[in-house]
């Protein structure tokens, strides 16, 4: 294996890891804010890929209109998701009801996507094309050839994650959101609008996940099976240590890298390799790489 292959496999792996990290971070934000594991995370990603594909391919919108329109759609999807999947059941005596409801939402999202866009996979042009050939642009880094789409996925993913950290740590509203997630009753007594903090969490999560869908759409085909990628995000969360955001990001990147490097030897078994790593991890260090610390923030 030469340096060329190592670098390009790493870049591909980290790019996929970023996608899983976006989903994983969203999972933990929701668990913290409302205490619910969201099993529709992967299908929200799938839906985001379809929405952006429709805006780009069907409506042929230029990027500078497409991006704000997509962000608005994601925010609206987030709010609709909150008020249909979570809100009606939030006071249910049986707390698992909201979790089951996310599984139902996953199916509903798949069916809605099929109804609107059909069941055939659609293709999405890459963000950067080679102006001469019209194919995906390639970045030539000291003789190492890298797909621009992967490089951009890493950049976009990292920027999104960084922005969410800044929101929670540096902004007043973000600290109010943290407070509401940690103790809803105390937050309400102080006058923190908890309905707003919950809605904001859903909006942020759907934007993160759907943007992930947009970035990988050109790498895979856009189809209603994209939702299965959420298993990788779950694996990332478990490896990082349930409930720890930094751990989940690192866990997701590890999953992406393992998956990428396993293609050298056993391309068709890469799913198996990912889950063997996960099982090994659970046997050796069940609390995950970073365990769970009460002291951990955001």
């Amino acid at each position: 294996m030469n340096i060329n292959t190592i670098v390009s496999l790493s870049v591909n792996g980290i790019a996929m890891g970023m996608i899983y990290a976006l989903m994983a971070m969203g999972l933990i934000l929701l668990i913290r804010a409302i205490g619910v594991m969201n099993f529709a995370q992967g299908d929200l990603l799938m839906f985001g890929a379809f929405v952006t594909c429709a805006l780009t391919v069907d409506l042929k919108l230029p990027l500078w209109i497409m991006i704000p329109l997509a962000l608005i759609s994601f925010a609206v999807i987030g709010v609709i998701f909150m008020f249909t999947v979570y809100w009606p059941l939030k006071d249910a005596t049986y707390p698992t009801a909201t979790v089951i409801s996310t599984m139902g939402a996953a199916m509903a999202l798949k069916e809605i996507a099929t109804l609107i866009w059909g069941s055939l996979p659609r293709s999405m042009p890459p963000l950067m094309k080679n102006p001469k050939t019209g194919k995906a642009a390639v970045l030539n880094l000291f003789g190492i050839k890298l797909q621009w789409q992967f490089v951009l996925t890493i950049i976009v993913g990292a920027v999104l994650i960084w922005l969410v950290f800044v929101l929670f740590e540096k902004l007043y509203a973000g600290r109010m959101m943290q407070a509401a997630a940690q103790d809803k009753y105390a937050a309400e007594l102080l006058g923190i609008p908890t309905i707003l903090t919950t809605a904001a969490t859903y909006i942020i999560v759907v934007i993160m996940v759907s943007t992930g869908g947009y970035m990988i759409a050109p790498i895979f085909m856009v189809s209603n099976t994209l939702g299965s990628l959420q298993l990788r995000a779950f694996a990332g969360v478990v490896i990082g240590g349930l409930g720890n955001i930094k751990g989940a990001i690192i866990g997701s990147l590890i999953i992406g890298l393992v998956e990428s490097f396993s293609t050298i030897q056993f391309s068709q078994y890469k799913d198996a390799v990912v889950f063997i790593v996960l099982i090994a991890m659970l046997l050796v260090r069940p609390q995950g790489l970073f365990g769970e610390k009460v002291a951990d923030k955001a």
């Binding site: 007043y172 600290r175 109010m176 943290q178 407070a179 940690q182 103790d183 105390a186 937050a187 102080l190 923190i192 009460v294 002291a295 951990d296 923030k297 955001a298």
Partner: peptide, 12 residues
């Protein structure tokens, strides 16, 4: 709020 600092708790 257990995961906020004393100062951040006061800020809320």
């Amino acid at each position: 709020f257990p995961g906020l600092t004393v100062r951040e708790n006061l800020e809320t």
